[in-house]
Amino acid sequence: MAKKQIGRREFIISGSVAAGVLAVAGVGVKYLDISHSGEQLRQDFLRPPGAIGEVEFMYGCIKCGLCVQICPVQAIKLAGAHEGLSYGTPYIDVREQPCDFSCDALQCVETCPTAVLNFEQFKDAGALAVEKASQEPGVDLSKVNPFEVQKVAMKEAVLMGKAHINKNTCLAHQRKGFKGISRGTDFEGIYRAPDSKFAYATPLKDKEFDREICNLCVTECPIGESAIVFVPGRGSGKLHPRVLEGCTGCGVCVMVCPTEKPSIVVEPIKS
């Protein structure tokens, strides 16, 4: 009996030390939580497509990295310890490697087991688009490829952020052209350009541009003219890029932008 009591005493002592340590950890986490909540979301820390709100994301994401593994362009990375509580959660740094939709099916979203990258919205958008396409008057149903329609609709339903143009540094705004390789010969980023003859992504450094007025962000956009257009300005009549409602925030424009600091940035959507 005496031995049992010693055991119990030991349990109470070490158990309360353990509980104390956990309580301190809890206070620390809460403190980090509060001190980081006012922070701006950054374009080098975009959440992958279909990400739910940040609060749910933080407990929903189990940090398995399946989205990292499936991404064909390796745009998704796992955050390090310097991101604090976000350690192990997936992010995209669009200046280094954006999401270029070359997987065609939002595979990172489909693979996520906890649905913090939520596929439901894309499934609905795809189904709706297919239904719409088949109901259009005078359409030859045999010529409509439902997979193509679905693919495009799903891609357009992505909303990671919105691109913004910095007029002070943008080459087009200064009536400058661009000739050469946009990010240098040792830049590692890859993407599938709209005019590419390949179905997969190719290195940006392999492509040489020659533009009288720089419009790389417009021509290389994987979404197309619903997202960004090259139009004359209202006052000056100068041609320059303008971001439209359809922008998904994928960040290809940020990667291809040839200025030293990108003249186009993606502002994450706060949800």
Binding site: L22, A25, V29, M58, C61, K63, Y87
Partner: peptide, 18 residues
């Protein structure tokens, strides 16, 4: 139990960081 309570209290997977 502590880590589960901690998860509930902070709404974070605290244990995963440790």
């Amino acid at each position: 139990f502590g880590f589960i309570i901690l998860a509930l209290a902070t709404q974070q997977l605290v244990f995963e960081n440790l």
